[in-house]
Design a protein around this nucleic acid. Sequence first.
DNA 1: CTTGGCACTCGCAACCCCCGAGTGCCAGAA
DNA 2: TTCTGGCACTCGGGGGTTGCGAGTGCCAAG
Lengths: 339, 339
Amino acid sequence: MSEDRRLHVLRAIVQDYVRTSEPVGSKALLERHSLGVSAATVRNDMAALEEDGLITAPHTSAGRVPTDAGYRMFVDRLSGIKPLSKAEKVAIQRLLEGAVDLDDVVGRTVRLLSSLTHQVAVMQYPSLTRSTVRHVELVPIGGTRLMVVLIVNTGRVEQRVVDVGRDLAAGHEQVVADLRSLVNRTAAGQALTAVPALLQGALEQVDPADRDIARAVVSALEDALEEQTEERVVLAGTANLARVGSDFPTSLGEVLEALEEHVVLLKLMGSMATLDDEAVAVSIGAENPYAGLRTTSVVTSTYGPAGGLGVVGPTRMDYPMTMAAVRAVAHYVSTILDT
Amino acid sequence: MSEDRRLHVLRAIVQDYVRTSEPVGSKALLERHSLGVSAATVRNDMAALEEDGLITAPHTSAGRVPTDAGYRMFVDRLSGIKPLSKAEKVAIQRLLEGAVDLDDVVGRTVRLLSSLTHQVAVMQYPSLTRSTVRHVELVPIGGTRLMVVLIVNTGRVEQRVVDVGRDLAAGHEQVVADLRSLVNRTAAGQALTAVPALLQGALEQVDPADRDIARAVVSALEDALEEQTEERVVLAGTANLARVGSDFPTSLGEVLEALEEHVVLLKLMGSMATLDDEAVAVSIGAENPYAGLRTTSVVTSTYGPAGGLGVVGPTRMDYPMTMAAVRAVAHYVSTILDT
DNA sequence: CTTGGCACTCGCAACCCCCGAGTGCCAGAA
DNA sequence: TTCTGGCACTCGGGGGTTGCGAGTGCCAAG
């Protein structure tokens, strides 16, 4: 028996099942694929594939359906990544180039990805572990309060109001100006993760009389840095989960719940990050560590220095197309964010 | 026949139907409510209520179900707003007080509201039509580029990078400083909507030699102001849509789609805003102007100067409880944002 | 206006039965 | 050894039928 032909049969089963969402039988296979052998032979092959755990029969007298392992085999060895058409690539690029700011880039990206794949798109906010401080601004806002604004090189901004316990109205402008200058000299251009330590060092240089103000500002900055390091995630296309003919018989609620657990999605994208940039990672069904996503497949890639994005859909998905879309979108987002 | 008793019957039907989600018959009503009359009398009343379009029978030999008009009558005349318990109020307040910034307030609020009501919570970002400019910061960021940061009194921040077409590296610090000072004198404390006109006037005062730089900055600011006026909306609890025993037989997808159309939600909250602050508005089923929400009821209230928040759920919802939760959350958010 | 009684209506669940797609296996051919 | 045609078998699902019971509308009497 030809090992090779068996894999052809598996590929044909996956393709047909993805197309029709109905279990595929030996006869139906012969009609749509020219395998050059008879139905009986195909049946033997199918029996072998079932023995290997790659396909399964939902009930005695129905066709076969790929198992998670079957999809895995398909993705790893049987399918290329179907490249997108020139026109699609251009459309993606145009759409993303029209974004006006970071929020807009993220928003457009998830919507684009969900409409390309007809699935739920997930995107991690540009990761900031490798981000640097671009500028820190201190703005007195009346009374004893001071607004601390942190601007990160990716364009994100975080602000905090601190009460410095001393009236800044008159005569203290210089204190604030000095402090602004010191903080910027210390932190500008530095990695977010390195800044807290540097600031602590810089505190030494402050006139002891103003040490309390400086301490309050530094504390607010540390808080803001913490917030920036805390990752966020954005979704689009959850309505696709309820599409007619969708899978997720009963578990739709579980999937929605899992998607609301942004922490889960972040961990997932983190753990799936591949060594190779530009590569696409796929997690199929029960391979997935999170219970709510056991009936789904997740296709992710990375963008920029350390961001993740991808889609969540039924295990019965068009992997070549989805992987191509995820890869292409990740690629274009990377180039957009690079500028 | 007593008009009064008929309304009692309607109320009992709504309450039972909300509890059991099954059509309620005359006998079942007698068991759970002491109406002091016989089943036959109740049947006569039910026939009259059906005649009036307040209830309907899904099929000949089943109990009755309230129509949209029936729920409307219930909400307007038959149910109070069940006040929350002291403990619940304290819990709400504690939770919201723990928020660290505006994003966090919004995030906590929607999650809180969705878990209180077990429905989808919707919250408009604090509306900025009445917001004012707190401060504008100009930061040269190398080469010919300048970052313009707009800080609004609600704490939101928007930034833009503009290319001023002239190298700012050396000797031009003063130009930037002057411009910063001018812009702040002009815009600080002014309503966002008034600022563009004021800035155009201020342009006159700029040295013609630097007019081009000023124009670029003003243009970026106008863009940022536009963005701030553009309203956003945040959701939580979409998983509740798929709860077991949920309604939305087939239309779940439509509802999810409608929820992704944030513009629709914003319009809805805008149109439902009541004259009376603190009041709760309810839009029931087909009263709703948006097709995707024809099978849902929307309960909203306003917070702060002009924000909206609320929940979207099945028409068969516990109106007294939901209205109480929405009202209470809106109230506490208002007080939190006031500080 | 209310009440008890009674005939009637239908949705629904259970049941049955049949059909056909699809299988596994076997004996013979290549 | 591998492939093929044939054949008996399995079983899920669709369609028709039936019985049950909840619930109704109406009526005549209180």
